[in-house]
Design a protein around this nucleic acid. Sequence first.
DNA 1: TGCACTAAGTGTACGCCGTATACCGAGAGG
DNA 2: CCTCTCGGTATACGGCGTACACTTAGTGCA
Lengths: 218, 218
Amino acid sequence: MSAEPRTPLTRDRVVAAAVGRADAAGLDGLSMRALADELGVVPMALYKHVANKGALLDAMVEALFVEIGVRDASADWRGWLRRRATEVRGALRRHPWANGIMETRAPGPVNLRHHDAVLGCLRGAGFAFADAIHAYSLMDAYVYGFAAQEAALGFARPSDAGEAASRRAASVPSSDGLPHLAELVRLLPASGYDPDVEFAWGLDLLLEGLERRLASRR
Amino acid sequence: MSAEPRTPLTRDRVVAAAVGRADAAGLDGLSMRALADELGVVPMALYKHVANKGALLDAMVEALFVEIGVRDASADWRGWLRRRATEVRGALRRHPWANGIMETRAPGPVNLRHHDAVLGCLRGAGFAFADAIHAYSLMDAYVYGFAAQEAALGFARPSDAGEAASRRAASVPSSDGLPHLAELVRLLPASGYDPDVEFAWGLDLLLEGLERRLASRR
DNA sequence: TGCACTAAGTGTACGCCGTATACCGAGAGG
DNA sequence: CCTCTCGGTATACGGCGTACACTTAGTGCA
């Protein structure tokens, strides 16, 4: 019945527990105190491994980039970008708490390697310096924007979409004068809405557009 | 020297002051207590006009949609969408605090009219129900994603871009193995980077893509 | 004229939060 | 054996959102 030795705290253990807690309870549900509790430790013990909560968030984002991984270069730049975009979106779906902070936290080394790899893919595809930046900005804006949208609407399965739409509609006094929104609420449940399809639709449009830009510059 | 009558508190005054404070100090700098102070009132007085801080945030987002306004329909759907996107981005630039919360807060009536108008524009342009939703999702993802990116990078003038890039680069131990990022840091300052151009580049690509989709479905 | 009722603003207090600071015990190195 | 470092602890401070009970000023009606 005596105290078992208890595996020692590590920076990695702290970060992993933080990610787990944020997955389950959201960013608001992640407090240093609750996290310490979960690790069977007093709150201030965390500060021996992380400078402060901001640094913990930095580390969590970096952990997410590690989870995503950095893909090897490929001759098929469109496929490469598509796979990367899909993976980032998947990660943000598994870890919705990351949505607001992916771009705001201080970047870690893997994060930077990520950026470098994307830029490298675009330059390798033939984009000029300025166009590569444009393309990069466009892709990231779409992926992060879509993921944020998805997290905000808060449904994962196609069948939930209609339910979510009605919930939103119900929270508003009247849909008078909103014919298209009313149509959406009416038709969406039966339309077999699928967020994967939605994401791919936009992604295809983007990649096609990029290819055209590339072709026209050559 | 006696107390002047002091203009009475109003929900609108509270919301306006909150927007002002968030503009100046960010969302983190917006506390009920500081806001009350600014209004020369005790914190709890605010609760006579707003249910709680969440409701205040809802109202702030709604105020932002009011500021943006709902544009009248137009035959030129591309121009309409471009103007709207530009205006939304402009609003998010003036009020960076709104970046994380535009889509997550409970929507108010003007917000909904906004959505309805966009959907109406797309349906009017000839997009089928499902494609209109796809297009909508794509446009919003881009606009909000771009604005978030812009806010995260945190520079407004083209000339600041290089400085921001170096700052980011300096915060990282070494750029070894990051040739493209290194190139970016080296070339960006002199490249005359302009966020307006950046935004327009992606927006044009999007609208072009949408037009193609529209043409091919007809 | 008086009186109840309402709505706006106040005061106090509670339980969270992040974290500064001082402390303590165990193991390591001389 | 003594000191030093390092991981974990205890206590405490100031700030947060807000529940609850209160005063006070105005209003409608008898």
